[in-house]
């Protein structure tokens, strides 16, 4: 019994150490400025203030960046998941020449470093006159999001028993009818989990946003917030921590309500490969 308690205390100490940076981010964001530079630092804020959040929303372009990120990630997720769902259906359930090569290509690009693609993509998007637009980022994000989504959905699709579809076909359904009525409902949890991963991936992306967008109008959160750090004369940590917390809000929501979908996605894509 005592051993069990000791083990629990040990386990939780490790967990809390891992989570400490995030706790400290939260604490710093609600501390008044004068308390921030006190020695020794207070572990819990003596007075809780939301002034930094207020300043973030009223004095900086944070909301603009936030909105850009919402549009960008939603658009990317929508485009990528739509293409990948029918693509994965085709890859798993149809036979034609080149199918294996394509599956190989998907896995290959899933592992491909983005610095290889970023230079030609940059040139291409400049030539198309799309630089500094959110559209250019949606296009660039498909380079990593589409192989990823295809790979995830492919293994979700492979988990649906083929008999269900055959039964519907025997009953006189067309292939597409069976897809809509039999496969899609079965695939829904997989689609949700793929959409969540794609959204998070786009929400967090930094390199393409750094290279392709150089105007505050279409800058997403990642580069926008980093710009706040670089361009300010003296770094205001509490403001930056408030921005970090706000930036993680969508994630916290996913974690609170949809965590089972995340774990499922991990099982399909991360481990099996």
């Amino acid at each position: 019994m005592a051993r069990k308690i000791l083990f629990n205390i040990f386990a939780w100490m490790v967990v809390l150490m891992v989570a400490f940076p995030l706790f400290w981010m939260l604490v710093t964001s609600v501390k008044p400025q004068f308390e921030l530079f006190r020695r020794p630092p207070s572990m819990l804020p003596e007075t809780v203030t939301f002034e930094h959040y207020w300043r973030l929303l009223s004095d900086t372009n944070f909301l603009g960046y936030f909105w850009n990120s919402v549009i960008l990630s939603t658009a990317t997720t929508f485009v990528v998941v739509t293409i990948a769902t029918i693509g994965a259906y085709s890859l798993v359930r149809f036979r034609y020449r080149g199918r294996e090569t394509l599956a190989f290509l998907v896995l290959f690009t899933y592992l491909l470093p983005s610095v290889v693609l970023i230079l030609p993509l940059y040139l291409m998007l400049v030539e198309l006159g799309l630089s500094n637009t959110i559209t250019s980022l949606v296009i660039a994000y498909t380079t990593f999001a589409l192989p990823y989504a295809l790979w995830l959905l492919r293994s979700f699709m492979a988990g649906i028993p083929e008999d269900l579809e055959s039964a519907a076909l025997v009953d006189g359904a067309t292939r597409l009818g069976a897809f809509k009525d039999v496969i899609l409902p079965q695939l829904l949890p997989g689609i949700i989990s793929t959409a969540l991963f794609t959204f998070i991936l786009s929400w967090n992306e930094y390199l393409y946003a750094l290279v392709l967008v150089n105007s505050d109008e279409s800058r997403p959160l990642t580069t926008g917030v980093m710009n706040m750090l670089i361009s300010s004369f003296n770094i205001e940590w509490s403001l930056l921590m408030a921005a970090s917390v706000m930036m993680s809000v969508p994630l916290i929501i996913v974690f609170a309500f949809l965590q089972s979908y995340l774990t499922r996605g991990f099982g399909a894509g991360g481990v099996k490969g």
Binding site: V15, V18, P21, L22, T28, N204, T222, L229, F255
Partner: peptide
């Protein structure tokens, strides 16, 4: 405990870097 452990993986690298620079 599992959620807390998982969290660093899902936050943006920008957030992680800002927090660690402050630490």
């Amino acid at each position: 405990a599992r959620s807390l452990i998982l969290f660093p993986y899902f936050i943006s690298t920008v957030v992680a870097v800002l927090v660690w620079k402050w630490l």
